[in-house]
Amino acid sequence: MPQETLILGLNPAWQRLFFLDKFTPGEVHRVPKVEEYASGKGINCGRVLQHLGGNPLLMHFLGADYGSRIFDELSACGLNQAPVWIKEPTRICTTIACEGDSTELIEPSPILTEAENEDFIQTLNEYWTSTQCVALCGSFPQGFDVSRINAFDFAGKRVFIDAIEDIDAWLEKGVELLKINLKEYCKLLSRLGIPQVTSSPQFWKMTATAVLERLPIKNLVVTDEDSPVRAFRLVEKKFQGMQLQPPAITVQNDIGAGDSFFAGWLYADGEGLGFEEALVKATAVAVARCEVERPWNLSLERVAELEAELQSQIEKLE
């Protein structure tokens, strides 16, 4: 069995997805098709990783009716969970999908109590010692005491992050992968005081090198919607950068594309694939995800086709 990956997807949502042929703000719309299901970065990542053949354990806060629906749905598909039950209801994310574009309306996250923070720490303690691979997906709920999880012993842990807020202490401890989008990357550069001269042809090399020299990040990946995926690392203190342009496809629903990319990289890492292979695998998974309505419905055969297509298209960034 593949090595278990503890996924901390602490801010889940119940997804309501409206499909429209045309969306005009201010107009009345009769929705021909509505779907509802468990969602959120951790859930999307966990279910895709499971679909690929990985072995995820998902830890998340769940509350009230929608929390129970999420738990039941994930239990039915066989995804291992370590829920922390809270008083406030799990939030709802309403998404309008129209002509390949998505408009999201996300409710505020629940506010945790001190007792619920304590429940989280006790639950995490049950798995921490036996866990080698930890993946942090997305934001923390309101009231989450991040200082308590920062105090955990990370020695021997292989940490993967798809988040930007409240992660500085994690980055300083050292991570295998930081996967963020371009907007989040610019936030990170601002926090580190790294100049952002985007007009410079050396922008990526200069900024990524500065980040990797300041923080013990093994692999840094920046996604930017339809633009190339860019991946960076230092090999014996020498910069290595690559980019890969996703192919043009007919998009059915792109919600969770980044989460699927993250799952693809986690799976590739668990299979012992190298830097370039992980980039190709993760990109292929993200693209295949966008061709179907739900992330975990992606076709493994289509992923393999895309991998074969993308292997020869990696470009080196000098």
Results as ranks from 00 to 15, higher is better:
48 V>K: 01
155 A>C: 07
228 P>A: 10
118 E>M: 03
201 P>Q: 03
316 K>P: 00
264 G>W: 00
253 N>T: 05
231 A>V: 08
182 L>G: 00
226 D>L: 08
129 T>V: 13
295 P>K: 05
31 V>P: 11
218 K>C: 02
138 G>W: 05
208 A>Q: 04
190 S>N: 11
6 L>S: 04
211 V>L: 05
29 H>P: 10
48 V>I: 05
271 E>H: 03
247 P>N: 07
85 W>D: 07
278 A>Q: 07
267 Y>A: 03
256 G>W: 06
255 I>Y: 00
196 Q>K: 10
79 L>C: 06
177 L>D: 05
180 I>K: 02
112 L>F: 07
233 R>K: 15
150 N>Q: 14
85 W>Q: 11
250 T>P: 00
122 Q>D: 14
276 E>K: 12
301 E>I: 07
257 A>E: 08
124 L>S: 11
9 G>E: 04
106 I>M: 15
275 F>R: 06
30 R>D: 04
59 M>N: 02
5 T>P: 00
172 E>W: 00
86 I>V: 15
303 V>W: 09
268 A>G: 11
303 V>C: 11
29 H>D: 08
298 L>C: 05
126 E>R: 15
180 I>F: 02
269 D>K: 01
272 G>L: 07
117 N>Q: 07
236 E>S: 14
209 T>C: 01
105 L>F: 15
160 F>P: 01
21 D>Q: 15
126 E>V: 04
154 F>T: 12
223 T>M: 02
21 D>V: 08
314 I>G: 10
295 P>Q: 06
302 R>M: 04
106 I>Q: 11
23 F>E: 02
158 R>E: 14
182 L>T: 00
36 E>V: 05
169 A>L: 10
272 G>K: 07
85 W>I: 13
48 V>R: 01
297 N>Q: 13
281 K>A: 05
90 T>K: 08
231 A>G: 14
98 C>D: 12
84 V>Y: 10
134 V>E: 02
139 S>Q: 13
274 G>A: 06
21 D>K: 15
159 V>L: 14
250 T>H: 13
123 T>L: 12
33 K>H: 15
221 V>Y: 00
298 L>W: 05
13 A>S: 15
123 T>N: 10
21 D>G: 12
107 E>C: 02
37 Y>A: 09
69 R>M: 10
234 L>I: 08
303 V>L: 09
110 P>D: 12
171 L>Y: 10
217 I>T: 04
77 C>I: 14
66 Y>K: 05
41 K>T: 05
37 Y>R: 12
307 E>C: 12
184 E>M: 04
207 T>C: 10
173 K>A: 13
243 Q>C: 09
65 D>R: 12
43 I>E: 08
77 C>Q: 13
264 G>H: 03
309 E>L: 12
91 R>C: 12
54 G>N: 08
120 F>Y: 15
211 V>T: 06
95 T>W: 02
218 K>I: 02
90 T>H: 09
158 R>N: 11
